[in-house]
Design a binder for these strands. Sequence first.
DNA 1: TTGTACGCGTTATCAC
DNA 2: GTGATAACGCGTACAA
Lengths: 342, 342
Amino acid sequence: MKFEAVTIKDIAKALGLSTSTVSRALRDSYEISPETKKLVLEYAQNNNYRPNPIALSLKEKRSRSIGIIVCEIANSFFSQIINGIESIAYDKGYNVIIAQSHESYEREVLNVQYLASRSIDGLLVSVSSETNDLDHLKSLHERGLPIVFFDRIVDELDTHKVIVDNFKGAYDATTHLIKSGYKHIATLAGSEYLSITKERMDGYRQALEDNGRTADPAYVQHCLHGGMLYEEVESALEKMLRLPNKPDALLGCADKLTTNCLRYFRKKKIRVPDDIALVGFSNLDLTDLLSPSLTVVRQPAFEMGQLSTELLIQQIESKKPVKDFAKKILPPQLFTRESTEK
Amino acid sequence: MKFEAVTIKDIAKALGLSTSTVSRALRDSYEISPETKKLVLEYAQNNNYRPNPIALSLKEKRSRSIGIIVCEIANSFFSQIINGIESIAYDKGYNVIIAQSHESYEREVLNVQYLASRSIDGLLVSVSSETNDLDHLKSLHERGLPIVFFDRIVDELDTHKVIVDNFKGAYDATTHLIKSGYKHIATLAGSEYLSITKERMDGYRQALEDNGRTADPAYVQHCLHGGMLYEEVESALEKMLRLPNKPDALLGCADKLTTNCLRYFRKKKIRVPDDIALVGFSNLDLTDLLSPSLTVVRQPAFEMGQLSTELLIQQIESKKPVKDFAKKILPPQLFTRESTEK
DNA sequence: TTGTACGCGTTATCAC
DNA sequence: GTGATAACGCGTACAA
């Protein structure tokens, strides 16, 4: 079942005009007589004429659509980012095509190729936790496709980048734990490939050092899938809780890492914060309603989406090749709640 | 900055062939000699040739993209649905263009028009809570655009529809409250315009009646914005808690309604379930970690997205006009937890 | 086996 | 003031 729209040709035929006249009338060209204009405009109105964007794209060599690649939509942080992206894209007349990597490098490559083949005008990327090799993005970048990285960025490509101050987020969270009197602060981090992981680990370590402590490697566990798999979190936690000096506080470096910690603690009847304190990066709207209410580092996700999109569209619409790339760093915010009360 | 892709014409020129030969070689046509094929294929491979989907769309009069309109992406129920939609669409080679109504009728109309003008092949719709007038969808439907409604459906249009058994969801939840010994069961429902609200209210009432009780209208409060506004939930709850016979149990008919109830109760130090029990429709992954853990009616959102998309694509690709429309009803599931323990 | 011509919807350019 | 034509990239009917 096909959906046939009215075309300029239809209007021309119906009105006994040429397509060029109709086209000009619709675009309110000065060359067309008022009567003809009125005629055409009325007919177009009544028959619900809409210019065919596909024909325009073909002609203009642009699709007015941008691709997004994220690991997961069903994750509040990313859905908030997408909200931000959408709000700007919509305003500027761009479509948004979303693809998910589900944290798989292979799916990321496939999706990037797919998006590229859908003739997008630009790409917004947050790489998967497995991504180490960047050839799939490099080749597009070299061929001139505007790309903006957000959140999980990579150094190898010279493009606009928008991130949160992950160092500060982890630094503040860790400092808060120290100031609250916790002695043995462990951390559950995501994939070591990710920029955000490195930055957060640096913040965590620096906070410890600035307070005269040394970071114990045994207190750092990585989950390649960033908490997507409960079992991964479970085994990481068990490893830490088996240590001679059990940690009395934990920093969760991603939404799912944090919530899965909480799930594990509840399952094992480990009390938070009495047995162990918990602070985590999270953009869930519900962390205040959890048991206990959760101390979190919250990221300005919506703004991040907006800013990335502005930079991307600016680059897409720039007449001359952009040479000067921005690296925007947005501030995270710490909300202290019950889970770190001592 | 524009991103120029290799075209058939480029290949033809480079290889001294005609575009049609190249086209045929690429499509592995039997008419082309093995040597020419090899030549062309190799060149295409090396230069990363991809057929331009826009040119194809223009030719085939289809865009291989489908539009989705939902109230909000940043809502686990809908993001799970979108996940399901995406999984099927991707498999079948379709793009997905997502638009949000933010529960506003006006934005829904604008978005629908926008999507239609982007020459989508079909539309997946869950109407906004304000939507009462359906002309914007009817006119597209009449012009032959395949439309599938999911979750929040409308009777006026003859199309495929995919819903959850909302009646059963509410019936089971209410029955569970009755069996648990609660006497005064109130409900916080969404917009009265929505199909899901009506169905859930019917289930709620029927459960009461089947247990020899009568539904008291004072125990039913509606929130037009479906819980998006905390204040709306707050004032609805205050109205109910001021009643002479205060309710001792509450059924929340949507994710945000339920979580905002919990937020209100916590703020007012009303204990759940001791002062009031709470059961709600919710697809959050965290309801087991809330304080108290929440009894919920969970909907098969992912499956709903998949099924809707299958029906839509089936209709899009059907040679003859589809006359026989399906109404699929998926089962919800009740998870009983602390918030309704007596 | 390969090439030419056309059409999808639109607009820019040139002609009248 | 209006019309004819070409071009965007592709596939295909038809011609050679």
